[in-house]
């Protein structure tokens, strides 16, 4: 053992060899990665843009054009787009990021000019398949359409969202996401 130790401490050439070998390997790796990254980046961006566009069209029926707008930085709000049908402002598509069971849920909430929900769509999530995902069916998400103000998380009562048993955290997270968007629009978050 002591022999090995001495070698590492005093043999400058050996240390240099180790460093240079590692440098060479990492340099080649970095070069390779930058090539692949440059090749795939436009495709990935295009896909993300497309997904976003599709979900905006879904939550704001009838809108033909979406334009990004300036907005006040608000916790949970990640992006805001104004939805137009020709020149008529229909409302806003607010992208929110509430915390679910398996991490952040990225979702799109459409809010019309009267401050009512026009639709909800999930962009990405890491909820449990078969449990949390039950709170992402179109039937479940349709419950939010038309809601205003603050939606409470109680179960049973008529005015509340029917939460899915076994997916309490996921349902609650989605309600949070809708509430964030409603509060954001009500408080005049769009500049």
């Amino acid at each position: 053992m002591s022999e090995t130790k001495a070698k590492v401490q005093f043999d400058g050439k050996y240390i240099a060899k180790l460093a240079i070998t590692l440098l060479a390997i990492t340099a080649v790796a970095a070069l390779l990665l930058s090539v692949v990254y440059a090749q795939t980046k436009p495709v990935i961006d295009e896909l993300a843009e497309q997904t976003k566009r599709e979900s905006m069209a879904m939550v704001m029926a009838g809108a033909t054009e979406f334009t990004p707008v300036e907005y006040t930085e608000t916790e949970g709000v990640t992006d805001v787009n104004a939805a137009y049908n020709g020149t008529e402002l229909l409302g806003y598509c607010v992208q929110t990021a509430p915390s679910g069971f398996g991490g952040t849920i990225s979702m799109m909430v459409g809010v019309d000019t009267n401050g009512a929900v026009t639709g909800v769509s999930i962009l990405s999530h890491s909820e449990t398949a078969g449990l949390g995902t039950k709170a992402m069916t179109s039937e479940f998400l349709a419950q939010y359409t038309g809601r205003t103000g603050t939606i409470t998380v109680k179960t049973g009562a008529d005015t509340d969202i029917n939460h899915i048993s076994g997916a309490t955290v996921s349902s609650r997270a989605i309600t949070d996401g809708v509430n964030i968007a409603l509060a954001f629009i009500a408080e005049g978050g769009v500049n």
Binding site: L18, T21, L33
Partner: peptide
């Protein structure tokens, strides 16, 4: 690859391939 830095080198090689696969899948 000198044996003293083999694990570090292997991880760099593996991580490179994983990142490539990840980017390709994502795209």
């Amino acid at each position: 690859i000198p044996s003293k830095i083999r694990i570090a080198s292997y991880i760099v090689v593996i991580a490179t391939f994983v990142t490539i696969v990840q980017l390709l899948l994502q795209a």
